[in-house]
Deep mutational scan, measured.
Amino acid sequence: TFYNFIMGFQNDNTPFGILAEHVSEDKAFPRLEERHQVIRAYVMSNYTDHQLIETTNRAISLYMANL
Rank of each mutant, 00 (worst) to 15 (best):
19 L>S: 01
9 F>P: 01
46 N>C: 07
20 A>M: 04
17 G>H: 05
55 T>D: 04
5 F>Y: 07
22 H>R: 11
59 A>S: 04
33 E>D: 05
22 H>C: 08
7 M>W: 03
62 L>G: 03
13 N>T: 08
30 P>F: 08
59 A>R: 03
4 N>F: 09
24 S>M: 14
28 A>V: 06
59 A>V: 07
12 D>K: 13
46 N>H: 12
31 R>I: 07
18 I>Q: 12
15 P>N: 07
14 T>A: 04
45 S>L: 12
33 E>R: 03
63 Y>L: 07
20 A>F: 06
32 L>H: 14
20 A>N: 01
34 E>Q: 15
7 M>S: 04
5 F>A: 00
8 G>P: 03
22 H>Q: 07
56 T>C: 14
48 T>M: 09
2 F>H: 00
61 S>P: 05
3 Y>F: 12
26 D>E: 03
58 R>L: 14
5 F>Q: 00
22 H>V: 14
11 N>D: 08
23 V>Q: 03
29 F>Y: 04
62 L>D: 05
37 Q>T: 12
29 F>S: 06
5 F>C: 02
26 D>W: 03
48 T>Y: 08
22 H>D: 02
15 P>Q: 10
30 P>C: 03
21 E>Q: 15
36 H>C: 15
7 M>K: 05
2 F>W: 05
46 N>R: 07
28 A>W: 12
34 E>N: 14
54 E>P: 03
13 N>L: 08
13 N>E: 10
66 N>D: 10
29 F>L: 02
52 L>P: 01
7 M>P: 00
33 E>Q: 04
60 I>K: 00
46 N>W: 06
18 I>A: 12
11 N>W: 09
29 F>N: 04
55 T>Y: 11
26 D>T: 06
62 L>P: 00
45 S>G: 09
58 R>P: 03
9 F>S: 01
6 I>M: 07
66 N>M: 15
32 L>Q: 12
37 Q>H: 15
54 E>M: 10
5 F>H: 00
20 A>L: 04
67 L>C: 12
47 Y>E: 01
35 R>P: 04
63 Y>E: 00
54 E>Y: 07
32 L>W: 13
52 L>T: 03
